[in-house]
Amino acid sequence: MTALVRSELLKVRTIRSWWAYLIVIVAFTGLAVAAQIGSTDGGDRGTVDFQSDLVETAGIALLLAIILGITIMTTEFRFGTVTPTFLVAPARELVIAAKAIAAAVLAIGFALLALLVVAVVALPWLASVGAETHLLDGEIGTGAAQQILSVVLWALMGVAIGAVVQSQVAALVGTLVWIFLGETLLIGLFGLLDIDGAAAYLPFQALDAADGSGGGELLSYWPGVAVSLGWIALLGAVGVARTRRRDIT
């Protein structure tokens, strides 16, 4: 299993798009932090609330983690490399498990990188304007830890979706459309049917709850994590079954 995970990590690192992930995380997080600090009044910059919002700018890592998860799974089908992969490891469920672990490891890296960018941009800036910093306080630290776990959940969700859909384009486009449009429409539909409460259990509403930022209609933190894991397990089980049954031609 360790060998399979190492192989999966090597697969990601030996493709140039690996650098694109890192560059996007650094660039977007850096810009988001700078924009947020630059557009806030001096007095508010020293508050805990403002600085927890700063930590949330690391959220770009969520989107990249789910794209990575989907790609780790579907690239193999796209380029046919799934053939040599399954020749080395005929137990296909182990390959998917190795991909999930590799995606989780890389997701932690993404989250840490994004948080590092937040710290590198925000700490000297806040110090230079004389604002009190809370970024290293316990409360914000918890928020950051929740954010890291949340990025891992998004990566696992990506692997599970990839295993179910298998076509790279369909999985990527379908997921983005679902996130930005599908769930919103479903929430509206649930409202019409008078079952508003069910909306919080939709996969990306649960994932939203699990990043710790909270929100009116969302589940609270731990139920959010639990429901997210439930969706990942369900999709993962379907994905494993589909992948095991598939003829690799």
Partner: peptide, 14 residues
């Protein structure tokens, strides 16, 4: 997008 050597290294690792 992978080099020939890295293609082999990926499979060798697994």
């Amino acid at each position: 997008g992978r080099s020939g050597r890295n293609h082999l290294r990926v499979l060798a690792a697994a």
